[in-house]
């Protein structure tokens, strides 16, 4: 078997030239943003002897009197309504703990899930005992943020048929800040695969299902083999997403799709080679720019 080996090289960052703006508003920890006391202290800042000081490296954002610093890269800070993909880490009394790349594990209450048998089903003690039958440690789910606790932990719910346990597919983890907020994060891509772009940076790729059985409640897992063509598409998409993430391109349906299309001239395994990656990403960027413009 031929293996592809290469020596380390300095990675070149691809960018569209001429975009050297917004530099002035970059701060690093310890930088004093303002000594004016009329401002409100937001995230990423602290008060050091009356001076508003940055505590993270990033961009300063001013909203009226509120000053925040948004770090370029951080763990997921959930907001109500976000779509997330997560993994069950623990089953507790009346709730599951879900790892969502957030600062603390999120909580999925037993009362916040749709159980088989319809929305109005009462939760009984029996349900509590059989929680593990529905979701067990290691299972992946998609969910929506229902509330944010004071310590930053998230409360999730899956009370919609969109959400629930995930079956066969591929999980890709990227930085949460790369996922663009959109109306919907569930997409059936025309290339034959579906994608869930979790706001927390967890991206789920799966074969576009046929007709969904309504009453499965999201806990049904198909164990039928997936067709080779579908798997190839999913693999290609995965590599495309990684390529885009490596070049810090915002992820949303269009960018993923464009990238997919640009990559078609290459073999799937070649996409992650730096030079191919560069080419594909550059094409994608151009197409995105064209579209915008």
């Amino acid at each position: 078997m031929a293996a592809d080996m290469r020596l380390p090289t300095v990675r070149k960052q691809v960018s569209l030239s001429g975009s050297k703006s917004a530099i002035a508003s970059l701060v690093v920890p310890g930088d004093v943003i303002t000594t004016d006391t009329g401002f409100m202290r937001g995230h990423g800042t602290y008060l050091d002897e009356e001076k508003l000081t940055a505590s993270v490296a990033g961009e300063v954002e001013r909203v009226n009197k509120l000053i925040c610093v948004r770090p370029l890269k951080t763990r997921y800070n959930g907001e109500v309504g976000d779509v997330v993909v997560g993994r069950i880490t623990e089953v507790q009394q009346k709730r599951w703990k879900v790892e969502t790349n957030s600062r603390l594990d999120s909580v999925l209450l037993l009362s916040a899930v749709n159980l088989p048998g319809g929305e109005l089903r009462r939760r009984s003690a029996e349900d509590e005992l059989s929680m593990r039958d529905y979701l067990q440690e290691g299972d992946l789910i998609s969910a929506e943020v229902q509330a944010v606790f004071s310590d930053g932990a998230l409360s999730l719910h899956t009370r919609s048929l969109k959400y629930g346990k995930l079956g066969q597919g591929v999980l890709v983890q990227v930085s949460p800040s790369l996922v663009k907020r959109q109306k919907t994060h569930f997409h059936y891509l025309p290339c034959g695969s579906s994608i869930i772009l979790g706001n927390n940076g967890f991206i789920w790729l799966y074969p576009t299902p046929g007709q969904q059985d309504e009453d499965a409640g999201g806990y049904y897992t198909s164990i039928e083999p997936v067709a080779l063509s579908d798997r190839e598409v999913i693999s290609r998409l995965r590599n495309c997403i990684l390529a885009l993430a490596a070049h810090k391109v915002m992820l949303f349906d269009t960018s993923v799709l464009y990238c997919y299309e640009s990559s078609l001239t290459h073999q799937i395994k070649d996409i992650l080679k730096p030079e191919v990656m560069e080419e594909v990403v550059l094409q994608t960027r151009h197409r995105l720019a064209d579209q915008e413009g």
Binding site: Q13, S15, L16, S19, K20, S21, A22, I23, L26, V28, A57, G58, E59, L72, K73, S177, L178, H247, K248, V249, M250
Partner: peptide
């Protein structure tokens, strides 16, 4: 180093 890094990153994601 930090400012350099910051600048590179923000240029990439900036627009």
């Amino acid at each position: 180093v930090v400012r350099q890094h910051l600048q590179e990153m923000s240029i990439l994601t900036g627009e």
